[in-house]
Design a protein around this nucleic acid. Structure first.
Length: 581
RNA sequence: GGACCAUUAGCUCAGCUGGAUAGAGCGCUGCCCUCCGAAGGCAGAGGCCAGAGGUUCGAAUCCUCUAUGGUCCGCCA
């Protein structure tokens, strides 16, 4: 149930009728017509721009259309008044019963309220995290992980068939570096003194990996040439790292559907197949790139390379897919990977990258556009940096200084729920300040707490009501007389609840899960506001002593708020709190 | 030199993909605590939406240019 969509439908139907009666010309486009909550509540419950949008194509004055429309709409029982305002807005006021029914709808649908049909079962692939399997996940990955995961849940909620996917970069040179680093730890486990030269990973997290390797192969690799052990150790180390990463993700509550290996693209003809597809479209050629301007190309030499004509699909320059030594560039397997996604039949693709990969957006979009003949849209969301603070003081991450902050550090300190919520309190492309102390503060300025608190308060009301002998069973609450919710403050909360389905749609359409977090904060604010007014106006309290029926109606409202909060938090991957400690 | 992202209240940020008098939290000012949970509440002040053009009934939102900040820019994955 989306009341805005319903009223918009009513408006369109009324306009159709006006066309049939000759009050409006035929052939008008009604698509741009909206029914939205006005910014200023004084303008009523809902406003439509119909008259202004239609005025020009219909060759009529906006106010004339608006007045004719208003007269007809006023006949509908749901609408109590329709007034023309400003340049031609039509402001509608809705009957209290319309809003009261929102609570009934929420109770009826439970956390499924607002679940949308926007996606219509279309298959969407959301690729996120995709960190190199060379070590534990750090804070930067955490934001990408939370964002991608929440986005996936949001799209699922909006009616898409979502696949969560992680691309394992296990095919490049960095996994060789990993293997050599593990080998050093392996030697160390055998009692040897080792040094970590430039270009290896000296992190402590590889110590147990070296020991596990020792336990597995004994001294078989000691003193052996790299050619003997590199391939084996690489595979072993990659698996170990992926186990680590999977465990990190699990700690954060992220579960992938698919882990896709880059390595599986090599030697299987898949890269070749993808490039062959581009070649058949005339998008592969041998050529020489211009040196980048402005940047000092010290050892620049013009070289003939195999290039993808990405400029045909919106990129700025063509991109090399093969190195001068005949090996693939990193871009080649990326193309093959996305080719594979297209072939798996997804209707839309989403990649979540860190902002430092912003330079790859155009070329990836170009590749997908070319590979799918423009049929599969690729949206790339970049997540900006997370700046860490401790009690207001910024601190820098440094591997060397040992102040390297991992995903695990964050989750262990503040918990997965807080971590996830806070990561979504900013738009994905805005920088985020993360203060280890402030996120645990219990005050209004901490949205995590504020939203959780609202949910907990509802639980508290239910407990208190039960103690007072009020029947708060599901049946009793569902059967409550919602007509008793007639105070303007209560209607206000109902209005906010009514916006939820609409918000889900907008957030899903723009791929912006942070909107859910902001909405929840607003809803919680409205609910707390109503609660606080009960301090002065006793008739607004949720429990009305000696009046079980009124209490039940108010509890129904509170319950509806809790349900929508739980649904929203569910999308964000956060568990709602039953009580605050 | 170029690309991408940002620029909104003193501070940190939203702004429903073009709607009416631009919002929230913090901070500031003033009131309020024997009251279902005051880890607060209510009210108020505070804005040339970086700047300049353009598009149209209408722009913080779309286009162009400029300024400032960030990220990135042949074979490194």
């Amino acid at each position: 149930m989306n009341i805005f969509a319903e009223i918009r439908g009513l408006i369109i139907a009324t306009l159709d009728q006006m066309v049939a009666e000759g009050a409006l010309p035929e052939g008008l486009n009604f698509d741009p017509i909206t029914a939205e909550p006005p910014r200023d509540a004084a303008h009523g419950d809902m406003a439509t721009n119909a008259a202004m949008v239609l005025a020009k194509p219909a060759g009529m004055k906006p106010r004339d259309i608006a007045e004719a429309l208003a007269a007809r709409l006023a006949d509908d029982t749901r609408i109590t008044s329709a007034e023309v305002a400003g340049p031609g807005f039509l402001n509608l006021r809705l009957a209290a019963s319309v809003w009261q029914q929102v609570a009934a709808a929420v109770l009826d649908s439970g956390t499924g309220f607002g679940r949308g049909s926007l996606g219509q079962g279309q298959k969407v692939n959301v690729e996120y995290v995709s960190a190199n399997p060379t070590g534990p996940l750090h804070v930067g990955h955490t934001r990408g992980a939370v964002f991608g995961d929440a986005l996936a849940s949001l799209l699922d909620f909006a009616g898409y068939d979502v696949t969560r996917e992680y691309y394992i970069n296990d095919g490049g040179a960095q996994v060789d570096v990993l293997a050599r680093s593990v080998y050093l730890r392996y030697l160390e486990a055998h009692g040897q003194e080792v040094a970590f030269p430039e270009g290896t990973y000296p992190g402590d997290y590889l110590i147990p990996v070296g020991e596990t390797l020792k336990a597995k192969v004994g001294d078989a690799y000691v003193g052996q040439d790299e050619s003997v052990w590199l391939a084996e150790v690489r595979e072993f180390a990659t698996e170990q790292m992926m186990d680590l990463i999977r465990a990190d993700l699990k700690a954060l509550g992220v579960e992938m559907d698919v882990f896709y290996s880059e390595k599986s693209l090599y030697g299987t003809g898949r890269i070749e197949a993808a490039l062959e597809d581009l070649k058949s479209k005339g998008l592969i050629y041998e050529g020489v790139l211009e040196p980048p301007k402005g940047k000092k190309p010290e050892d620049w030499e013009p070289r003939v390379q195999t290039l993808f004509k990405s400029t045909e699909h919106g990129d700025d320059v063509d991109r090399p897919v093969m190195k001068s030594d005949g090996g693939w560039t990193y871009f080649a397997p990326d193309i093959a990977y996305h080719y594979d996604k297209v072939q798996r039949g997804f209707d839309a693709l989403i990649d979540v990258f860190g902002a430092d990969h912003g330079g790859y957006v155009k070329r990836m979009k170009a590749a997908v556009s070319a590979l799918s003949d423009g049929k599969v849209p690729l949206d790339i969301k970049l997540t900006q940096l997370v700046k860490l603070f401790k009690n207001g003081e910024p601190f820098k991450m440094s591997k060397r200084a040992g102040t390297f902050v991992t995903l695990r550090d964050v989750v262990d300190q503040v918990g997965p729920d807080v971590t996830r919520f806070v990561m979504l309190t900013r738009k994905n492309d805005a920088m985020l300040d993360f203060d280890f102390d402030k996120v645990l503060e219990q005050s209004r300025e901490n949205p995590v707490f504020y939203v959780q608190y609202a949910h907990a308060r509802v639980s508290s009301v239910l407990r208190k009501a039960a103690e007072a002998g009020i029947d708060v069973s599901e049946a009793a609450i569902k059967g409550a007389d919602l007509g008793k919710l007639d105070h303007e403050a209560e209607i206000g909360v109902l209005r906010k609840l009514a916006e939820w389905p609409r918000l889900v749609e907008t957030a899903a359409r723009t791929n912006e899960p942070h909107r859910v977090a902001f909405y929840l904060y607003e809803l919680a604010g409205d609910f707390h506001g109503l609660w606080n007014r009960g301090n002065d106006v006793t008739s607004l309290r949720f429990i009305q002593e000696g009046d079980a029926q009124t209490s039940q109606a108010k509890i129904a409202l509170a319950q509806a708020v809790a349900i929508v909060i739980a649904a929203g938090l569910g999308i964000l991957g956060v568990n709602p709190a039953q009580e605050m400690r």
